[in-house]
């Protein structure tokens, strides 16, 4: 059986200066990787790029943009290329996507760009795109997914950076609920604070909720969070405090319950070897008292400390400190 796609020439070397870029085919993001740049600088381009040659001999690159950019950066004069005749560009686009997905997992930013290109540049609608591309991209054939991807493709640069860093489509799509300028502001702020993928997703979710509940803009929410954290604090701690500050805005009652619990706990003066754990989100019936001991004597000293608390409590039921721990129910 012979393949159905457009047939290339054998590998030839093309002058880099003669090659023009067809952006309709560009979906790799980020557009450069330092590892590839280094490899090309050391060993040159090994895998040929794909070129479409028009009747007037115009040479357009349609696959291998990162290799092409790395070769230019490294100052190479020529690049190995497979050459195709003009006329079957959409088939080439599909083959180009399939080539990529066969060797690596595309991120959400890239997948959304593929769908956008197929729709906007090649003029195909949902039916045709889902028919030929969804399988290659590992997507379920769903109109909803198609719409979500097109929405993500319209994001600005900061949002694209975030969604391309390993975010799921569902998480990426949450950003669609923000106005474009607010989305960019939020994403820049998230990047500045260097949150990982899951914290970024949580942050987007929380700020989206706060927007809806408190009717505040992203700028106002960020300003509120910033106002509660000292600007002099170092980055990782500060980012973490900002996250807590937003979480408190999102769940003020839960935050108050946690604060009250902590205050009650501190007033008990328990030894550090005793950990008191409320149920997650205070949903449950029991508090856990955990005693950590590395030997017999440290266990005994913890027991003694707890006995003292118990004695004080039984003598003084009216102003019980211990019952403060159970105030959440």
């Amino acid at each position: 059986m012979s393949p159905k796609g457009p047939a290339p020439s054998s590998v030839v070397r093309e002058f880099i200066k003669d090659i023009v870029v067809d952006n309709r085919f560009c979906f790799s993001f980020p557009a450069e990787t330092s590892a590839l740049n280094k490899s090309v600088a050391s060993f040159g381009v090994i895998n040929p790029v794909w070129i479409v040659k028009s009747q007037d001999n115009r040479k357009t690159i349609v696959s291998g943009f990162r290799r092409y950019n790395a070769a230019r950066k490294a100052g190479l004069e020529t690049i190995p290329a497979l050459t195709f005749k003009a006329g079957r560009e959409y088939d080439l686009f599909i083959a180009h996507v399939a080539e990529n997905t066969a060797v690596r997992k595309l991120n959400v930013g890239e997948i959304s760009r593929v769908i956008f290109c197929a729709n906007e540049h090649f003029g195909h609608g949902f039916e045709k795109i889902s028919d030929r591309l969804f399988d290659a991209l590992g997507l379920e054939r769903s109109r909803k997914i198609y719409d979500m991807l097109l929405a993500v493709a319209g994001y600005g640069p900061a949002a694209k950076d975030i969604v391309s860093a390993g975010m799921s489509l569902k998480a990426a799509y949450r950003l669609a609920r923000f106005e474009p300028d607010q989305r960019e502001t939020l994403c820049k702020w998230i990047m500045d604070n260097r949150y990982g993928t899951s914290k970024s997703s949580l942050m987007i979710d929380m700020i989206d909720d706060i927007q809806a509940v408190k009717k505040k803009s992203v700028d106002e929410i960020i300003a509120d969070a910033e106002a509660h954290v000292s600007p002099d604090m170092e980055k990782p701690q500060r980012s973490s405090r900002l996250f807590e500050s937003v979480a408190t805005m999102r769940n003020p009652i839960l935050a108050r319950m946690r604060r009250d619990f902590q205050t009650a706990l501190e007033s008990l003066n328990l030894p550090p070897s005793v950990e008191v754990i409320p149920p997650n989100n205070f949903e449950g019936r029991h508090i856990e008292f955990v005693i950590r001991a590395r030997d017999r004597s440290s266990a005994i000293s913890s027991f003694k400390a707890l006995s003292k608390v118990a004695e004080a409590e039984s003598e003084n039921t009216e102003s019980s400190k211990l019952s403060g721990l159970f105030g959440w129910i």
Binding site: K144, K170, Y173, R174, R177, D209, A212, V213, R250, N251, P252, I253, L254, M257, P279, N280, N281, F282, E283, G284, W328, I329
Partner: peptide, 30 residues
């Protein structure tokens, strides 16, 4: 997300919810 997509005018999600042990979101206990 389904509610947000299908009922954009609904305010039903605009409250304080927490995740409960049965993996459902509920209004915070108080």
């Amino acid at each position: 997300q389904v509610i947000r997509d299908r009922f954009p005018m609904s305010d039903i999600l605009n409250s304080e919810f927490v995740l409960c042990p049965d993996n459902k979101m509920r209004y915070v206990k108080p």
